[in-house]
Design a protein around this nucleic acid. Structure first.
Lengths: 233, 233
DNA sequence: AGCATAGTTTTGGCCTGACCATTATAACAT
DNA sequence: ATGTTATAATGGTCAGGCCAAAACTATGCT
């Protein structure tokens, strides 16, 4: 019988594991504070440095944030999708993933979320999307603002699909696409901006009409409108 | 003008940020070691505790692993998709995402990767899938082994799609689906196992024939075959 | 020569104890 | 009441040490 490499859990990781389980299982509610560092030292018999490294692990994982001062301490955060986005950013930067891969992934995700949005959107979802659309259309001549509201619009559509995983994935790559290598937003001409608004409207109409096929089709058409002409590898 | 909360970078995070940039930019190659802790202490003027917390951050992010002993130290790891999988696990556990969401997400991802696999698979991809299929078919009466090879098969198909992001997303949820709340594998009857093998074969045939529509269709049919009868929310 | 064995060195892992910085509360003075 | 000044609680950082693990080096026995 062969054994794989046995992972030896070190002190900080062991303590972090215990606390992590308490957080993810809900035994410690979001908003509540962990015991102060010095109390953890007494309870665990570990040194303060070790306890602090454990807390640093949890903080890096996004499960707590630490604040100094009286009534400070490590406060449990509600689990959100920032951690996924961060890990995806690492993957994109570290593996030098190209824009074609990002766009392709985005099409898969947004095609699916547009379809789901048409099937599941609530009145509140529609209101949220409409509010963003109004702000976006008002910002047609303010390019940075337009780009910002555009990102919000796509995220709102994804959220209307009510699948938290697909939403998380979509947000992860949306962040990478809006900041293409730190560069500013490419000069989209004014007629392009008008076309964007029109395309959004058509997608929203399909979602409102609960027409899943149309929502997916129009979203994909919208996304593909901005691809470089050099398509078809 | 209103300002958002200004994020004050603490010592460890600042140092981690510098090192992280060096790693993600490729200035430090995977496999290479960071300077020893005591050297970083001298170079930065920080204390050893601070330096260690910085390294712990990088270790938690999966960018380095630290090993004791001579020639030990913090070794830079190639960036992989484990970090994404870990963050997704947190999201699933912390937000109590249900199996319906996981299955739905899986269908979106695997439908897309099956399609891409048909378009892009290389001879090496096909060989890899064939090897796994052979092992899987040989393990038809060894349920744990079957489940393991089944997971490998789906991952191999995703990889044949040559989109690292979609592959990472798919692996992230595949891990959660194979371990449904720690329970063992449900007793799939023998004829179900035979049907699984047949379904796999049909998918592979489509991928081999570069028939993207058929690959997607057959993969979705395969995935939906195991859903509970209570469909349609 | 060859090979086991025992140092030696490098490096992370952990501990003790201290002091500083920040924040909220309590006490006090006006 | 209200503004100001302690005081306490808590994380942030530092200094210095010792232990544990791992790799290299020298030794000594065949």
């Amino acid at each position: 019988m062969t054994l794989g490499a046995v992972k030896i859990a070190k002190g900080p990781e062991t303590l972090a594991g215990v606390l992590r389980d308490d957080i993810l299982s809900g035994a410690i509610e979001p908003g509540a504070s962990l015991a102060p560092e010095r109390a953890l030292v007494e309870q665990t018999g570990l040194s303060r440095a070790t306890v602090r490294e454990a807390l640093r692990i949890l903080e890096t994982e996004g499960l707590v944030i630490s604040r100094p001062g009286r009534n400070g301490g490590a406060r449990v955060q509600p689990v959100n999708d920032n951690g996924v986005a961060k890990a995806v950013q690492f993957l994109i930067r570290g593996r030098r993933l190209d824009n074609a891969t990002l766009r392709e992934t985005r099409e898969v995700l947004e095609g699916a979320t547009a379809r789901l949005a048409a099937e599941r959107r609530t009145a509140a979802d529609l209101a949220e999307i409409a509010a963003i659309s109004a702000r976006l259309e008002a910002a047609i001549d303010d390019l940075p603002r337009l780009a910002e509201e555009n990102a919000r619009w796509h995220i709102a559509v994804a959220q209307a699909g009510h699948n938290p995983l697909l939403t998380a994935f979509m947000k992860s790559i949306a962040a990478a696409i809006s900041h293409p290598s730190g560069d500013a937003h490419p000069e989209l001409p004014r007629e392009g901006r008008a076309a964007l608004i029109k395309a959004h409207r058509r997608v929203v109409e399909a979602i409102q009409a609960r027409d899943a096929d149309a929502a997916e089709r129009r979203m994909l058409r919208h996304l593909r409108a901005y691809e470089p002409r050099t398509r078809g590898k």
